[in-house]
Amino acid sequence: MTVKGCEPFLQAYDIDVNNGDTILDALHKIKDVQDGTLSFRRSCRSAICGSCAVNINGAPKLACKTQILPEFEKHGRLTIEPLSNFPVIKDLVVDFDSFWEKVHKIEPYLTPKESSAKTKDKDGFWIIKKQDALKIDDVSNCIFCGSCYSACNTMAVDNQFIGPAALAKVWRFAGDVREGNNKKRLAKVSEDHGIWSCSRCVECTQVCPKDVKPLIAIEDTRAKAIKAGIKDNAGVRHVESMVDSVKRTGLLDEATMTVKTLGFMRSLGIIPLGLKMEFHGKMPLPNLFKSIKGIEEVKKIYEEVEKKGSRVKAGTHPKDGWGS
């Protein structure tokens, strides 16, 4: 619990708990009976408004949806803290300003493409096939509760990272068959601190209370950006040099990948890091010629994949894989 001008501290409260009581019930009991100064956000109490995400025993969860007893039995304690990666205003209330700024940055609205008799019916309503609607079904569940943003490991080291919620919102539009502004939006999020900054740690997808799967949205967006020809950035160069390295030798040539990703001049900038790694015996050397034994098998895999075009057929993937 934090008070302006104070160092943050934890405060203990004892409450009686009934079976089925939620963390939000507990917070209300404390506020109503023991400590009127306790502040937290809440509204719908049915897991749809996104107000009440807090860290419960270290993991971001909706207070209204989390039952006390199972949580207590699992951890043997109940520590409730404000979300991580957000500045704290008071107690469990955090400052969402930069979260929203990032959401706004991706131009979070549909810019409809030109319609035709095929895309709209006689009354002017869009015709949308079920499989097309399914592509954005998961991301359209987002309630902007900030859980993913709180759990995001990239955010913890790069506070300019746009974050999983805003990137899921990117796919909300990039994956919409009606969208006509994809190229611009995809180019924008391909810049630094965008889709390619995600470290793919899966935390966002694991903590999401609405099963939005931001990581899959990020992967879908990356695939779509490459397909749209937006390749002049470190992220794509990194991926392409990785693909190339494995195809050529069956091995990951990390040293060469670094140079290809960052370019020669910027690679010079990380020489100090290289020296440090060398000191610890962890500096990989460029591997230009050596291949693994089964390299022919690897090449066959590549051929198969390239023949198919992508891992999963367009329109069937969204629940479980890469983009179309």
């Binding site: 609205y109 549909l110 409809p112 019916d121 002017g124 309503f125 869009w126 015709i127 949308i128 096939k129 079920k130 609607a133 954005i136 359209s140 539009f173 919409d176 009606r178």
Partner: peptide, 15 residues
């Protein structure tokens, strides 16, 4: 719908 609402569709893709 034209703003981009995600209404559920029928078999023909209509609202």
């Amino acid at each position: 719908d034209s703003m981009g609402a995600i209404f559920s569709r029928d078999e023909k893709g209509r609202i």
